[in-house]
Computed example of a mutant assay.
Amino acid sequence: MNASLRGTGRQYGVALRAVLLFTVVLGIAYPLAVTGIGQLALPAQSDGSLITSQGKVVGSSLIGQSFTDKKGIPLPQWFQSRPSAAGTGYDGANSSGSNLGPNNPDLVKAIDERKAVIEKVDGVSASQIPADAVTASGSGLDPHISPAYALLQVDAVARARGIGTAEVKKLVEEHTQVRDLGYLGEPTVNVLQLNIALAALDPAGNK
């Protein structure tokens, strides 16, 4: 009986020491090491790829955000982001897509409504509107739009701000990111970075 108890005690002792060891190594030392390496090698990315404007953090280059009024109506002086199905929109804590199939009535209705808004705001026809302008990404956090959608908005943004179309188009071209390694993915435009550049170009219209 005593030998059995001693054996059981040794087993518990070994298990406890293993738990403590792995807690220290994997729960404390490893995260600190990875964080330290990240801060040294890629400090901006480690801190969330934050974007600052006029000395203030205004967002992240990895997470989209809305440029609409409180009723969800697009503000014409800003380039608009891709729609989001993450929470109430671009919610990093609720990343998700709509999970609706292409023939789902709710999705079809939402797309038609979005097209109608874009037609009105940008003064274009439905046939000119690219898919990313009316559909959400799988994560709901995509900060990018296609160059086609950005260029589609140029005239309306320039008109709303009273500045030259050529100047606004040049900003879009300057903020168009090419394919990774020259062949991976598609060209994109980061909407937040583009709008920050737009505000710098036209400070009086930054409202």
Rank of each mutant, 00 (worst) to 15 (best):
P203T: 01
T135H: 07
G205Q: 01
A18Y: 11
S98Q: 00
K170Y: 03
L16M: 12
L151M: 14
R159D: 13
S61L: 03
Q45E: 15
D106S: 12
G72P: 09
G36Y: 13
R6K: 13
S53Y: 15
S98M: 01
D132F: 08
R10H: 02
D106Y: 06
N103P: 07
L40D: 14
A204D: 03
G7Q: 10
E186L: 13
S96W: 08
Q193L: 05
K170V: 00
A33W: 15
I145C: 07
H144T: 10
D69F: 07
K207T: 02
A204F: 00
L107D: 07
L171A: 02
N206C: 04
V168Y: 00
F67N: 06
Q153R: 09
S84L: 03
D112L: 11
A200V: 06
Y90L: 04
G92R: 10
G123I: 10
Y149K: 07
V121D: 02
V34C: 03
D106N: 05
V191F: 02
A116C: 08
K207P: 01
I28D: 09
A18G: 04
G164H: 00
S125C: 07
G38R: 10
E174A: 12
P187G: 10
V178F: 04
A110L: 10
L192M: 08
A86K: 05
Y30Q: 15
N104V: 08
R114E: 08
H175I: 03
L21D: 08
K109S: 14
S60N: 06
A85Q: 07
A197M: 02
P143Y: 11
G27Q: 15
Y90T: 05
S53L: 12
L201W: 02
G89E: 10
G89M: 02
G97R: 09
P130H: 01
D112S: 13
I73M: 06
P74R: 00
P143S: 04
A33D: 13
R6Y: 10
Y12R: 04
L107P: 06
P74C: 00
S46H: 06
A148H: 12
V34P: 07
N2G: 11
L26Y: 14
Q11H: 11
L192P: 04
P147L: 11
A3G: 04
L184H: 09
L40K: 13
V24W: 13
T68Q: 06
V117S: 03
F67S: 03
E119Y: 07
E119C: 09
Y90I: 09
Y12P: 00
V154A: 13
G92A: 12
V168G: 03
R114L: 00
R10A: 14
Y12V: 05
I196S: 05
G140S: 04
V121N: 00
A197E: 01
V178M: 06
P147E: 12
